[in-house]
């Protein structure tokens, strides 16, 4: 049913119900409604946040307590040893460093090359612009399953980039969703600004750097947030191409810990949740600090194109 159809259908529906005293019924109903809404949202928030609470509680327990009473912190059962336990088998620091290099490389490429192509698509007029924009949209629907094997063959075998941070970065280098977002924001910059600057004889790169980029700074922050979660959280690709433990990002080394080491340790629950906390905290903090840049309309436009 389209909106138009809904518009037509609504009066017909109304004709049947107007005989009832709508006013009084709706007052009580509005109240019930908002209570109901509060309950739904409350249950939602608890369901979404509880595993994070459990992660924190678990990582601090000396002896794992997986019963209901374990949910309340017990001062006699608190310790930071779990972080040491997981760190003794996988180096958290080198994992964080590798994750940081991987993510940083992707962010750098996306900010430099993504902004360039976003600007070219929004502001400049050149042959091939339409095709390039179509490509940016198309790339987003190519599923990774199809690329997984050939990329592995190319990157790990042919280019010899296994266990190399460049090999990790390559498939993620320029985030196409961020490109669309940048283009979207450059489109909103009034055209006259560019024309005025051009008549002054400013060169295109300077125009981009000193006029366009300062105007779209919020888009850059949103683009960074959007791009950050990709490589930081990615598991399959770095898992495929890094076999050396000291080259693995934290997500991969933690996964190896979960599958092969944890079960043989004294407190697997504590150690795994401690590792998980270290992996989760940087992103969660980043998103809480910059939450106002991660709003629905930006994301919606980024995804919808």
């Amino acid at each position: 049913m389209t909106i138009q159809q809904a518009q037509e259908a609504a009066p017909a529906e109304g004709a049947r119900t107007t005989s009832r005293p709508a006013g009084r019924r709706s007052k009580g109903w509005t109240r019930t409604q908002s209570v109901l809404r509060g309950v739904v949202l409350g249950i939602g928030a608890v369901a979404f946040l509880f595993p994070f609470y459990y992660m924190v509680i678990g990582s601090l327990q000396k002896k794992p307590n997986q019963t209901l009473s374990g949910l309340i912190p017990d001062p006699s059962n608190l310790t930071l040893d779990n972080f040491g336990a997981v760190n003794s088998r996988i180096s958290l620091l080198s994992g964080l460093l590798n994750s940081g290099l991987f993510t940083g490389g992707v962010l750098l490429c996306t900010l430099v090359f993504g902004v360039l192509v976003g600007y070219a698509l929004a502001v400049l007029e050149w042959r091939g612009r339409g095709v390039t924009f179509a490509i940016v949209l198309l790339v987003q629907v190519i599923p990774f399953q199809l690329l997984q094997i050939p990329l592995y063959v190319l990157v790990a075998r042919n280019y010899g980039l296994a266990d190399n941070v460049l090999g990790m970065i390559l498939p993620f280098a320029i985030n196409s969703t961020a490109v669309i977002l940048f283009r979207q924001y450059f489109l909103q910059v009034p055209r006259e600004l560019f024309e005025a600057a051009r008549i002054d004889g400013a060169r295109e790169l300077r125009l981009l750097w000193s006029v366009a980029i300062p105007l779209v700074r919020p888009a850059l922050v949103t683009g960074v947030l959007l791009t950050f979660i990709g490589p930081w959280n990615e598991f399959l690709w770095p898992f495929l191409i890094t076999k050396q433990a000291d080259r693995q990002p934290l997500a991969v080394s933690l996964a190896n810990y979960i599958t092969s080491v944890a079960s043989s340790t004294a407190n697997p629950f504590g150690a795994v949740t401690a590792g998980a906390l270290v992996l989760a905290v940087p992103v969660v903090v980043l998103f809480i600090v910059f939450q106002r840049y991660f709003v629905s309309s930006d994301l919606g436009s980024g995804v919808k194109g």
């Binding site: 992660m55 678990g58 979660i229 598991f235 991969v252 998980a276 989760a280 969660v284």
Partner: peptide, 11 residues
């Protein structure tokens, strides 16, 4: 926004 590896650890 959190890594699946971390959340799977809890689940």
């Amino acid at each position: 926004i959190t890594a699946s590896v971390a959340l799977v650890g809890v689940w």
